[in-house]
Design a binder for these strands. Sequence first.
DNA 1: CGCGCGGTTGATCAACCTCAACCCGCGTGG
DNA 2: CCACGCGGGTTGAGGTTGATCAACCGCGCG
Lengths: 234, 234
Amino acid sequence: MCIAGGRVEDLTATKAPHITSQSSDRTMVRRVMTHDHLFYQGDERDFIYVVQSGWVKLYRTLIDGQRQVVGFANPGSILGLESDGEHTSGCEAITAATVRAIPVSRLAEVCRQDAAFAEHILRQIGRQLGAAQAQLATVGAQSADQKLATFLLSIADLCNVSPAGDFDLPMRRGDMAEFLGLRLETISRKMSDFQRRGWITMTSLYHCRLVRREVLEDLAAGGDLEDATMLRVS
Amino acid sequence: MCIAGGRVEDLTATKAPHITSQSSDRTMVRRVMTHDHLFYQGDERDFIYVVQSGWVKLYRTLIDGQRQVVGFANPGSILGLESDGEHTSGCEAITAATVRAIPVSRLAEVCRQDAAFAEHILRQIGRQLGAAQAQLATVGAQSADQKLATFLLSIADLCNVSPAGDFDLPMRRGDMAEFLGLRLETISRKMSDFQRRGWITMTSLYHCRLVRREVLEDLAAGGDLEDATMLRVS
DNA sequence: CGCGCGGTTGATCAACCTCAACCCGCGTGG
DNA sequence: CCACGCGGGTTGAGGTTGATCAACCGCGCG
């Protein structure tokens, strides 16, 4: 697995081939495949990105190799606002994805000229801060079962759960574990538990059905008073 | 202890007597005593606040009574940007403090007119997002000892640690515990451990000296690649 | 076919929680 | 003055949750 830092050359190497369009306003659309990186922790922060399709994860790597996923982002999310100078997290696509890249050099200028855009960005980042705080409450104050219940409900909402309760689970077990501050074995066990108890059914590894949503809601409700959304489209 | 929500009347009741000055730009300075609330989780978000002196904590309360401190704020921090509508966290002073209150109704207008201010706010909230993500990594991926080491070093920096290594610890054990996702007994034990090992000395309950900073740094370095600052003055 | 990746499951263990006792300093009221 | 209660902190004994380590499965692919 890749430790962040010193990967600028790789990034630029992979970046160029993926530029698919460059519009007149000097922003460009970038296309990434599953497990491609948009940027690494420690990279120069020369762009911010607006997710247009697909899912990406934001994660930090600690010196001892431990990782923490600090957020998942779906279309509408804006990435790269949390730092100036260098990226404090790495960003990896968990599905194929497209993003619009905006040079940070243009950012201040745009904010100055386009107040509505500035307000939109402010709202987006505020939302992300709220989501990070909600996640902090989940990771810091909930049990493994509560964490998983909270997580499944959030993802279900974000993924437009069908009336029958079906939804996609775009990330791997390890990503969920690193997001919730658990080990992947624990995720696996708890998912099996939930299934055994008849609360969910896994129709495939990455597709889930909520059978008894109320139970999960009760569990998660030993959760936050607010809804624990994650980085969500505004 | 107070569960958030439905406390608007109390808030307004305590607010009025504390207004000490109202300047021409319709902002006002509010003075709060230790353990006073600036606002409760669920309150209408009618002001944002800029901390001018003292320390406050931001925390969320879960339905089952568990609490998570999502941040400490010292002078320079801006509060209330993480939500629109209602406050998603409560805010309680941990020392006597003064804040400047800015009506949210004025916020959009100000951002539209004063681009520099808008940029400053954007930088502040970005910093807070970064801090929240760093905290997420600490809470989700570190052991109790690592968490405490990380925390002590952060606070030491924020509190202008003296050359000798002395600094104030403005919050109680329970606040530290709720911030780090631990129990206060665990905090107490680990602090005793650290002292026994000669890494720190507690000159009083709320005053600490770093004796072997390097050791704490090594410990925390099983920590984040970035410095795990918390809500910090820009 | 063999290998690697992602996931599941089992057995064991330790970190941290829980509950309880106890200490200390302080304010209050008899 | 002392007794008392209370808030905040420390310490101890014992229990549980989730981590760790390891085996194993299924699948896709070279």
